[in-house]
Write a protein that binds this DNA or RNA. Sequence first.
DNA 1: TTGTAGGCGTTATCAT
DNA 2: ATGATAACGCCTACAA
Lengths: 344, 344
Amino acid sequence: MAAVSSEAKMPPRLSIKDIAVLANVSHPTVSRALKGSPLVNPETAARIRQIAEQHHFHVSAVAQGLVTRQTLAIGLAVTSIADPFTAEVVRGIEENANRHGYCVLLNDSNADPAREREIVRQFVERRVDGIIVTSSRVGALYLPLLETSGVPIVLVNDQHEGRSIHSVMVDNRHGLAMVLAHLVALGHRRIAYLGDRFGSASDTERLAGYRDGLRAAGIAFRRELIVRGDGRAEGARAAMDELLRLPQRPTAVCCYNDMSALGALRSLHDHDLRVPEDLSLTGFDDLFFAPFMVPALTTLRQPMREMGRLAMTTLLRLMRQKSPPETITVQPELILRHSTGSAR
Amino acid sequence: MAAVSSEAKMPPRLSIKDIAVLANVSHPTVSRALKGSPLVNPETAARIRQIAEQHHFHVSAVAQGLVTRQTLAIGLAVTSIADPFTAEVVRGIEENANRHGYCVLLNDSNADPAREREIVRQFVERRVDGIIVTSSRVGALYLPLLETSGVPIVLVNDQHEGRSIHSVMVDNRHGLAMVLAHLVALGHRRIAYLGDRFGSASDTERLAGYRDGLRAAGIAFRRELIVRGDGRAEGARAAMDELLRLPQRPTAVCCYNDMSALGALRSLHDHDLRVPEDLSLTGFDDLFFAPFMVPALTTLRQPMREMGRLAMTTLLRLMRQKSPPETITVQPELILRHSTGSAR
DNA sequence: TTGTAGGCGTTATCAT
DNA sequence: ATGATAACGCCTACAA
């Protein structure tokens, strides 16, 4: 019967040995020539490269990895690449990694801690030189793995309380305090916080900043002004609906992030409320759509790409030489646009 | 002077041989046990696994890759991971890849064709088992590489004219024709197209669909109703400004994509024009923010995640057995929301 | 069921 | 400047 094989006449993968015989030299020489070692005659080097090229030869990074014991690859675990915030951070990491000759192994945990652990395990199996995890809930759990495998790990926006691991994050607390100060200056006193419901550290910290702001202005904290969305538009919309059912509604609402503000704004429009005339609204992140919302959103800019770069820079240093855990905190910047105005 | 070395007492990486002596068996046995081979005594297998675990041993995927000649990794080159459309596609790919035991090597070309080529070269060097490229401008250029390296490639939304390579794409032309039909049914006759300026195939095809729609309705094509943005909000905003300077402005505007619609809407608001009362607006993609725009955007939904899955499924098949180039076309779905209404 | 031997494609360490 | 030779850590016959 006819063979079903599809590898018809797949040219048998070449190795430096093949190139070596073609060039009439030994394979170590080919190896040297191909990586531009100075200890090889320029002419023969050129000839070797010429031959390699015309045979479409590419050295095997996996063989290299085996002997050099470094793969020049880093593992990157994210909670959701479809999240614009994450995507920007990834961009910064990727860019920086590439510039330094590293490749990025991307894995999406879909916000599942168990899956996240599995991913990290796979990373060490693949012998990545370093690992970055964004918005991890289980950051601390990596410590043992880190110890035994020796693979350095850096976290971006660690969501676990109590850090004992390298990480870069934004100053959530101070950020929200700034927002509050802004709102208070506009005359607001009845200010709500539309948060997240998953008990992430960022939410906790932002809420703390909110309370700091209240305290600084001598405004009493009122439990009914705290509602919980899910960090995304749909959940925030519902949370805002809830807020609007209050006997006396707030004059300003601080959202956990821009995604939430997007959903909240939808709710306000549906209730025929005008922003900022009837109610002021703020976000956090400054995602690409913030300036295009109607009205343009006042928010806290998080230097997302820069944070990615920073994480990678930290990792590069760690891969070179390990050092004690350190958390880098970057400051958010208050971007004033048109969703906030004087209190009525 | 004190040593600066940081590799203090890094436990010397274990290999199956080490586990072998610890378990008093030969290394092939360890190898078998660790991958659950049925040809090893269950008890010894358990013992071996136990030992491996307590020593935090993880087999080296790179060594495996060297001998099995497959890395169980695929290369994924994107034009920009920060683009929400791309991010969704990546999600679908990643998800599907993982389910089948594959890892994803992500690279962002930043829309630079030269960089894209370099990335693909690096992929073959790293011996990925397959490659996916999104929105490639130079798809056809991969053909030779594909031939010589034997690495299968699948394109998502190939932007190059004349396909001779595996790819999955959306039916751009039919999509825009549907939008036109919708608008025409609402009584619009003066309909503009706000496109992209980079000569991508999607833009060309969508424009063709626009003209199809015009023709079907017996409406003459008018050059002045075609303006060019850049596929993103800012460029589209400027393009819309331009459109509004026309002596007689259109009653409806079809945007190249949702990002463009976002920018266009901003411009309309700045000109105190109401949507859809004064002007109808449509997008393409149905990104997450479309339902949250004010008014919610009527647009063509592209099954982004599904397209990613599809691309991966195709690649999986190709990695198993190569087959002649085939382009899979998916249909977009018209999502009616509130940015379109009757012509005045 | 288990062990032995050889090789996957490089780099590294010696010589020459 | 170049070559032999030995790893790197695993898998796959094949033999026992």
